[in-house]
Simulated scan of single mutants.
Amino acid sequence: MIPVSIVIITKNEAALIANCITACKPISDDIIIIDNDSTDYTPKIAESLGCRVFLENWDGYGANKNKGGLLAKYDWILSIDADEIPDAELITALHQLSFNDSKVVYDIKFKTYFGKKIIQYGSWGNNHKIRLFNRIHVKWSNSKVHETLLLPNFTNIKRLKGHIDHFTVQSVQEFYQKANHYANLSTEQYLINNKKNVFLKLYLSPIFGFIKNYIIRLGFLDGAEGLDIALITYKNTWSKYYRLKQLQRKLDSLSTKTHIIKDFDMEYK
């Protein structure tokens, strides 16, 4: 084994988690599951496969991944999702690392699947992410969604051989449900961050995103799946900004009413 802890956050991943853990066991003797109120057998399956399972409140993707990092046996953290499988070449590459430089982070190539089909173009194609890092210097942002790693200026990024197979969705219906879930989380995050220029984002970002995904990045070459990805991504982008606009209107209305009430109270005091 190598001095790496694997952190996986889960919720109702019983259909996927066993394959993920089995693929990760040749890498590490410390696999940590941060579970968020699963109503299926996810925690029991993980425990039966020798993982350390922690039932935690949901504070967002980044925050919960950081919880796993704090509970890790080793300083080196490999972040994996329940629907991801490291391939044999990547596992071999991990075993060949020296882990003697804590300032290095490792970028890993991803192969993303729509059902059983590998998506090679569009926003899902040619994908790679930093997933191996040392917790002494690096942690996740506390964003509820679309979390990113906070990298110091001295960070040295290296690419690993091999890849991670990402079985992201099995059907159009599942993809739509996931996209809707992420749209809700994004709206909440945008509201917290007081995001502005919602009008322009609402009408321009969805169109630009579709053109970039389907045409510029050649998503149309992935056939029906490429079109489904582009269309649902378009709708997801429009939906999150529409919801944000509606929420901001409600908040502005409440703020105005509160201001009027305060002025009224002051006038008659």
Rank of each mutant, 00 (worst) to 15 (best):
D59F: 13
V4P: 00
S28W: 07
I77G: 08
V138T: 15
S143T: 11
D101V: 05
K109Q: 12
S48K: 14
D59V: 06
A82V: 03
L70H: 10
L227F: 15
Y242F: 10
H181V: 05
A88N: 06
D81E: 04
S102E: 15
A179V: 06
I9G: 07
A46N: 03
K73E: 02
I261C: 03
D87F: 08
I207V: 15
A15C: 02
C24P: 05
G62N: 10
L227P: 00
K262I: 14
T112L: 01
P3E: 08
L94I: 09
I119Y: 10
S205I: 07
K44T: 07
E174H: 03
T10A: 00
K158G: 09
N153D: 15
V7L: 08
A88V: 07
S38F: 01
R159Y: 10
K67F: 09
D29E: 09
T187V: 12
L151H: 03
K103Q: 15
A14E: 09
I260D: 09
F210Q: 09
C24M: 03
D30E: 03
F133W: 11
I232V: 15
K11N: 14
S28G: 06
H146K: 05
I8V: 12
V7K: 00
N64G: 05
G162A: 04
N36I: 07
K212E: 15
C24K: 00
G122S: 12
D75V: 05
P3S: 03
W76M: 04
N64V: 02
D87P: 04
L78A: 06
F208A: 06
L185F: 10
S171W: 08
I108S: 07
D40A: 12
T42S: 11
I80A: 00
T112G: 00
G115H: 06
Y61I: 11
L149T: 07
Y113H: 09
Y113D: 01
H95M: 02
I21R: 11
D83M: 09
K201C: 11
W58N: 14
I157D: 11
D165L: 04
I6K: 00
D252K: 06
